[in-house]
Design a protein around this nucleic acid. Sequence first.
DNA 1: CTCATCTGAGACATATATGTCTCATGGGGA
DNA 2: TCCCCATGAGACATATATGTCTCAGATGAG
Lengths: 189, 189
Amino acid sequence: MTSRDPIADAAARLLAARPTASMAEVAAAAGVSRATLFRRYPSRSALVIELSRRAVEAYTAAVEEARLEEGPAADALARLLGGLTRLAPGYGLLALQPIDEAVEADLLALAAETDDRVRRMVHRGQESGDLRVDVPAEWVLSSVTWLVVAAADGVRLGRLAAGDVERLLTMTVLDGLRRRGASAGDAAG
Amino acid sequence: MTSRDPIADAAARLLAARPTASMAEVAAAAGVSRATLFRRYPSRSALVIELSRRAVEAYTAAVEEARLEEGPAADALARLLGGLTRLAPGYGLLALQPIDEAVEADLLALAAETDDRVRRMVHRGQESGDLRVDVPAEWVLSSVTWLVVAAADGVRLGRLAAGDVERLLTMTVLDGLRRRGASAGDAAG
DNA sequence: CTCATCTGAGACATATATGTCTCATGGGGA
DNA sequence: TCCCCATGAGACATATATGTCTCAGATGAG
C-alpha cells in the first residue's frame, strides 16, 4: 500500500496495529522527529482525520477497481478481496481512533456510498443464484472487512505468509458465501 | 457474558470497543466513581492485566466446553463458534491494550495450549475428510477469532441482530472451511 | 561559497490522565 | 439507634502526552 506521504503511511500502519501509540511513537515509526511530525500535521486529531480520510478514499478506490457490477458476483467479490487485502495492513483498525463526531459523520457518509455498491453486488449475486440468499449483505460487508484485518494481523504476527493470504481469504470467503452447489469457476449452480 | 465482577465486565466491554478510553470513562461505563475503580484495581495496568487474564480464561473455558475432540470436526467447530460468539462483545479487541511484556508472554503461553487444541481439531477434521485440507489451521484460528469480533461489532453498531449472529457465523464459517462436497449434517463427503 | 529550506533536539508551557487522599453520605447489620 | 463498611465527589500531586518554540546543522540549488 503506497502513497505519496511516507509519514502518513507509517502513522497509519502503527495506529492500525496499536491504537494507543503516542505521537512520539508515531514520529519514531515514521522515522522523523516530533517537531517534523507536528510541522506536517498540526495535531494528533488532524493526523487521525487525514488518515481516516485516506482510508475511506482507498476503500472507495478499491471498490471502484473491483468493478463490482461486472461479471459473476463471486468473481467481483474475489476482486474486491484482493483490493482490500492490500489496504488492511495500513488502515485496518484505524477506525478505533477517537475522531471528531462531525468529521466521522462525513466520513461515514462517504463510505456509505461505497458500502452500498458492495451491498448491490451481493444482492445481484443472490438474484442470479451466484451467492447464497440466507446471508444478509450486512454480514457480507462485516465479515469481508474484518477478515482482511485478520489476514493483515496474521501476517504481522508472522503466522501467515503474505503471499498466501489473498488466496486463503478468497477461497474461504467465497466458499462461505457462495450458494450451495456452485463451485469456483462455475457460472451456474 | 457474565462474571462475578460487573465492574470488570463493563470495563472489558468498553475497552474492547474503544481501546483509547480513559479510566474516567471506564469508571462511568461501570457505573462507579474513579475512586472506587482505583480501590478495586490499583492502576490501569493492573486492570488491563486482570481483564486479559479473564479473557484467556474465558477462551480456554469456551474451548473446553466445545469438546473439540468429540464428533465430526465441523460439529465441534460449530460448538466453538457458539462459545466464542458469546465472549467477543466483552473481550474481542482487548488484546490491543498495552500490557507488560512479561505478563503478555505468560498469557500468550496460556492461550497457546488452547490454540493447540483448536489446531488439533482442524487437523483431525482434515484427516477425516470433514474439513478442507488446503487451509492451514493458522488461518482457521485467525479467521474464527476475528469473525466473532466482526459479529460483535455488527451487533454493537446495530447492523446485525444479536439473535442472528451465531447462525450466520456458523453457516458461513463452516461452508468456508468444510471440505468441498460435504454439507451440514453429513458425516461423510 | 552562499543562501534558503528542512530537519532534529531539546526546552518549555499546557492539557490530560493517572493515582492518592480526605470527608461526607448512605446502607445494612446488630 | 449505632456502627461499620463501601462509596462518591472533589481536591491535590504526579506523570505523561501534546503542542510550541528556538537554535544548530545538513542539504541542495544557484
